[in-house]
């Protein structure tokens, strides 16, 4: 099933791919967990990585038998395309040989390949899975995206409408003027 993970990648990153193969060779005996996504795709994932997912840990605490049995651990709010990305991210960041620069480059490319919608979906999945590192990485990236952007951009980005009444908006601007913030 791990191979399926590989094949579904549209643009596998070289470093991650190589590393993945290396892992397969050197750590053949590593135990794996079976995860099932919301679109009913099952993945065999190294236990070392799967156990980084808070949701998986929690599941195993409740039903410890699942780790040994062939039962798949259901991930209700994660689709296969998100899980693939998440696994890609964690495999890279787990790679012992990855230097700081490699990771930085990887992170940049990882982010570049995502559009805003995918980014938010991935964030939701990361939140559900309770994967801290990726979650922090994504929220930081989003903060960087909306930082110093105009209000309209932020509204579009989050898909929300301006619900201020003109009076509220005036009052609000006056309040913020006190804080020393001026709007153009």
């Amino acid at each position: 099933m791990a191979e399926e993970t590989e094949s579904t990648k549209t643009e596998p990153l070289k470093t991650a791919e190589e590393e993945f193969k290396k892992l397969e060779i050197t750590e053949e005996e590593e135990s794996e967990l079976k995860l099932e996504t919301s679109d009913h795709v099952t993945f065999m994932v190294e236990a070392s990585i799967a156990m980084k997912f808070g949701a998986v840990q929690q599941y195993l605490e409740v039903s410890p038998a699942a780790s040994a049995s062939a039962t798949a651990i259901p991930l209700h709010n994660v689709a296969s395309r998100e899980l693939i990305l998440i696994l890609e991210y964690y495999r890279m960041h787990d790679w012992v040989d990855a230097g700081e620069r490699d990771l930085k480059e990887f992170d940049e490319r990882f982010l570049k390949d995502l559009n805003y919608e995918e980014l938010k979906e991935l964030l939701l999945a990361a939140n559900y899975l309770n994967v801290e590192k990726l979650f922090n990485f994504l929220t930081k990236s989003i903060a960087n995206i909306i930082r110093n952007k105009d209000v309209e951009f932020v509204r579009t980005f989050f898909g929300i409408d301006n619900d201020y009444t003109p009076e509220e908006e005036a009052a609000y601007r006056e309040e913020n003027a006190w804080a020393g913030v001026k709007f153009v």
């Binding site: 509204r155 929300i160 913020n176 709007f183």
Partner: peptide
């Protein structure tokens, strides 16, 4: 300052 700017987006924010 960015937080103050963000608060202009909508009442919820």
């Amino acid at each position: 300052m960015e937080l103050v700017g963000m608060s202009e987006v909508c009442t919820c924010l």
